[in-house]
């Protein structure tokens, strides 16, 4: 087991947002985290990277144990070194060029030489198809391009796992494809990924595992194929049905 989260709890203003989430990830897994809005998907992902302090919970990463509530600075730094995070709204550094966005963590946090960092960044940007925009600023890019740069920024530190929080939700429909294509390629290259998404095709065809959450609990988890073809819990069935209905509605609107 590469990564294991155990019994993750989080309260916001007296409201239990996470009520004991468990998750197991093997190297090379692509886990889709699904669930209705407000079920705690984002919070869970953020707790794993200490962007949010869990009230309780444990993380086992490469055999090393971390207390998700009480971890100290050194622990947090060690976990973050092995991970990358891709945000819904990219969060690129707006005062930095594309190349600088990718190198900044390497040169400033990793004390790497500029030439070396540039090489790594260039390779990462090539992987996401953004090697022709090195000197552009984020404001000069489309949302899809910004998100691809954000993915390259994550790749640059050679993480063992990448967390994605709805990476395509802020994008115009015609830009979603280019980001999903990059993610699909990463998955094929064997990258371990944890992806909160509403993209059912991605969950179904790219991810190999699903974690379905509702109201701060795991309702169902297991292989994607089984989840979509033969969901066990009633809530899972409802969720899949509602997604399919929404899509049919979309199609009928599109072709009306």
């Amino acid at each position: 087991m590469m990564l294991e989260a155990k019994n993750v709890h989080k309260r916001f203003d007296g409201q239990d947002v996470l009520k004991g989430i468990d998750l197991q990830v093997e190297k090379g897994d692509v886990v889709a985290i699904l669930g209705p809005s407000g079920s705690g998907k984002t919070t869970f992902l953020r707790c794993l990277n200490f962007l949010e302090r869990a009230d309780r919970g444990e993380l086992v990463f490469d055999g090393e144990r971390f207390d998700l509530h009480a971890a100290n600075h050194a622990d947090i730094a060690r976990v973050r070194k092995k991970t990358a995070f891709v945000f819904q709204n990219y969060n690129l550094f707006l005062n930095k060029t594309v190349l600088q966005n990718v190198t900044l963590g390497l040169t400033v946090a990793g004390k790497m030489k500029k030439t070396e960092a540039n090489e790594i960044a260039f390779a990462a940007l090539r992987r996401v198809g953004m090697e022709n925009k090195l000197d552009s600023y984020p404001s000069q890019l489309s949302g899809g391009q910004q998100q691809r740069v954000a993915i390259a920024r994550g790749l640059a530190s050679s993480p063992e796992i990448i967390y994605f929080d709805e990476p395509t939700s802020a994008l115009d429909p015609e830009l979603i494809g280019e980001v999903l294509a990059v993610m699909r390629q990463l998955a094929e290259d064997g990258m371990t990924m944890l992806v909160v998404t509403h993209e059912m095709d991605f969950a179904r065809n790219v991810s190999n595992k699903v974690l379905f959450m509702a109201d701060g609990s795991v309702v169902e988890s297991g292989p994607s194929k089984a989840f979509f073809e033969n969901p066990q819990a009633a809530r899972s069935r409802d969720f899949i049905r509602s997604i399919l209905e929404a899509r049919q509605y979309d199609l009928s609107v599109t072709f009306a």
Partner: peptide, 30 residues
């Protein structure tokens, strides 16, 4: 300056001071 940039900075391993110096303060100054 959006707080998300601060979080992104943490995620690439920078500390508070480094993020302030390289990301937040330059934008705020402008």
């Amino acid at each position: 300056v959006s707080r998300g940039q601060m979080e992104a900075g943490y995620c690439v391993g920078m500390n508070y001071l480094q993020i302030m110096t390289h990301v937040v303060l330059p934008q705020a100054f402008r």
